[in-house]
Design a protein around this nucleic acid. Sequence first.
DNA 1: TCACATACTTAGTATTGCTAAGCACATGAT
DNA 2: ATCATGTGCTTAGCAATACTAAGTATGTGA
Lengths: 115, 115
Amino acid sequence: MNLKYEKQLKKGVLEILVLRLLAEEAKYGYLIIQELRERGGDLFSLKEGTLYPILYRLEEDQLVESQWSAPKGKETARKYYKITPSGRQELIQMTELWDAFSGAVTTVLHNDQSK
Amino acid sequence: MNLKYEKQLKKGVLEILVLRLLAEEAKYGYLIIQELRERGGDLFSLKEGTLYPILYRLEEDQLVESQWSAPKGKETARKYYKITPSGRQELIQMTELWDAFSGAVTTVLHNDQSK
DNA sequence: TCACATACTTAGTATTGCTAAGCACATGAT
DNA sequence: ATCATGTGCTTAGCAATACTAAGTATGTGA
């Protein structure tokens, strides 16, 4: 049942990924969902019910800030999130942690001692 | 707060790691904890309260089988877990999933489009 | 005797991704 | 005109899992 493991693998990682996308430029939620699907296909696809709580947590931790757009013409109002300075610092540390962690996992999984 | 993210990164991965260790040879719980700490340091350190439920889940899913050791002399009885054939199949699929997933995450995190 | 390591178990908590539903608006097809 | 679809945000409740913390039992060394 790969779906089960796939779901678990996402835990914790989605938060880093979202922060990374926001480090490029301010974005709104719906766009983040689309970009994640573009970059990771099914592996990173997620529903609104997953993303928005992540954004709320990031904002609560002051890693991002939000601002409603002033809709021009017929546009729907969008809530734009941008990364904060402390968000950038945190992203650096999280990236280092990810590199160390994923490297260690890969080493164990591919370290063939089983003859 | 790196501890928080570290905890989340482990989710789902610990199960694969435990299965991988058992693919080498039959092992008992306490030994698995020690080997994980050896191989991943703090990143993989886990408490009994985390490991044993993982083993029970793996057994419930029939990916591993357990057998109590016949204690020789003064030894404490130990419960040995060994991987099953379907456990080996699952491990292969989980490893492929991990490689694809971790590769995709690393690509996003290190893809410098932020100028 | 008392602390510690080994070895397994389990109850309860927090985090987080999920489903599912809802609201509001715009657009295109029937 | 109505109805489905896409955009865009919100929220309640569920399930999985790593955690803390405590318990049981044995053996060893100070």
